[in-house]
Amino acid sequence: EWCEALHSFTAETSDDLSFKRGDRIQILERLDSDWCRGRLQDREGIFPAVFVRPCP
């Protein structure tokens, strides 16, 4: 499952995944309604679900 970043997100901890608006992120797991775990290029981490939308 893939999503597109609606806003940029800067990691606040070593577990977070930083990304820029427009990045396509592979969703690996939905942790709960607020957080997802994903992969961007060679990095993995968690990020807020409200920062992304599903890719068509």
Rank of each mutant, 00 (worst) to 15 (best):
G22M: 07
E4D: 06
E29N: 05
D15C: 10
E29L: 03
G38F: 00
D32T: 10
Q41M: 10
E29W: 04
S33Q: 11
F19L: 03
C36Y: 15
Q26E: 14
D32K: 08
D15K: 14
W35T: 14
D42W: 05
L17I: 03
C3V: 13
F47D: 03
A5P: 01
D23W: 00
I27L: 13
D16Q: 15
E4V: 11
F47I: 04
F51M: 13
L17F: 11
F9D: 05
R30E: 05
G22T: 00
T13R: 14
R43G: 05
L28T: 12
P48V: 05
E44H: 06
I46D: 09
P54G: 08
D15M: 12
H7Y: 13
G45D: 03
H7E: 15
T10A: 12
C36M: 15
W35R: 15
V52T: 10
H7L: 10
T10V: 10
I46P: 03
V50M: 14
P56M: 14
P54W: 05
L31H: 08
I46A: 08
S14G: 11
Q41K: 09
W2G: 03
D15L: 10
A5R: 00
V50H: 15
S33Y: 12
S18M: 04
R39K: 14
D32W: 02
T13Y: 08
F47S: 03
E1Y: 07
C36V: 14
F47R: 00
R24C: 11
D32G: 11
R30F: 10
F47E: 01
D32P: 10
L6D: 15
R24W: 07
G22A: 03
R37P: 02
R37K: 10
P54K: 12
E12A: 12
F51R: 09
G22S: 02
Q26A: 07
A49S: 13
Q41E: 14
A5E: 03
R39F: 04
W2A: 10
L17E: 00
D16G: 15
R24I: 11
I46K: 15
E4N: 05
S33N: 14
S14C: 10
T10F: 09
C55L: 14
S8Y: 04
S18E: 10
V50W: 09
R43H: 06
D23N: 05
E44G: 03
C55A: 14
C36H: 08
R53P: 03
L28H: 03
E4W: 03
P54L: 12
C55I: 10
P56Q: 15
R37D: 01
E4L: 09
H7W: 13
S8F: 03
E12I: 14
S14E: 13
E44Q: 09
C55N: 09
W35M: 12
L6W: 07
F47W: 01
H7P: 01
